[in-house]
Amino acid sequence: MTALPASTDKKLGLVIDLDTCVGCHGCVTSCKGWNTENYGVPLSDMDAYGADPSGTFLNRVFSYEVQPADKPAQTVHFPKSCLHCEDAPCVTVCPTGASYKRTEDGIVLVNEDRCIGCGLCAWACPYGARELDQAAGVMKKCTLCVDRIYNENLEEVDRVPSCVRTCPAGARHFGDLGDPDSDVSKLVAERGGFDLMPEQGTKPVNKYLPPRPKDTMETAGIPDLKPVATEAKGFLGWLDKALEKL
């Protein structure tokens, strides 16, 4: 059913640290690798070796520059995937019941055996988290690696989403954001984690941690550079003046 559950037992999700992310795209690659071989149809590429390659990804990393009013600009790498919203607008618009939010852990999933590929869920998502696979014609989205996190065939250390397991900077954290005592909830409280586009009313489960304030460098002591020569001399000076007069 595409009705949203009134509440979920857990709120599994990611906490992404924008201070730590180095923008390596490792999570993007590991996500593509895991999810092309596991849950649902593969994440296809179109014209992969041609002039205009494109493909389906569940996670993408942007880079932004933020310019404070009175400080140097800073670069922020910004990974973006499904936020597993509590009020997920992508679920309720689905005409077939393919999109659903799980009561037990809050993960938003697509049942590909029901999806008609109408794309309305992608229209309803403010975050661009859903991509229609161009080969299979069904909607793909982050599954929070539902086939890893409960998978007892894997070592316990691997029972986290692929992106979290891969991140070399430790910028991605996974846990139950519905439990105020969980590590991720404490991290969010401590670092002032925030929602993306809160005005859309989607109540995202995933949180982002802001970049820590930058050191303020002592810049007052450096005098402005002065021009070493204002008047051109010699042959080139004469040539310059002669050409000016022409």
């Binding site: 942007f62 880079s63 932004y64 520059e65 310019q67 009013a69 400080k71 600009a73 802001p210």
Partner: peptide, 8 residues
Amino acid sequence: IGTVRMLE
């Protein structure tokens, strides 16, 4: 923090 601009 400030004005946001896409870098990449």
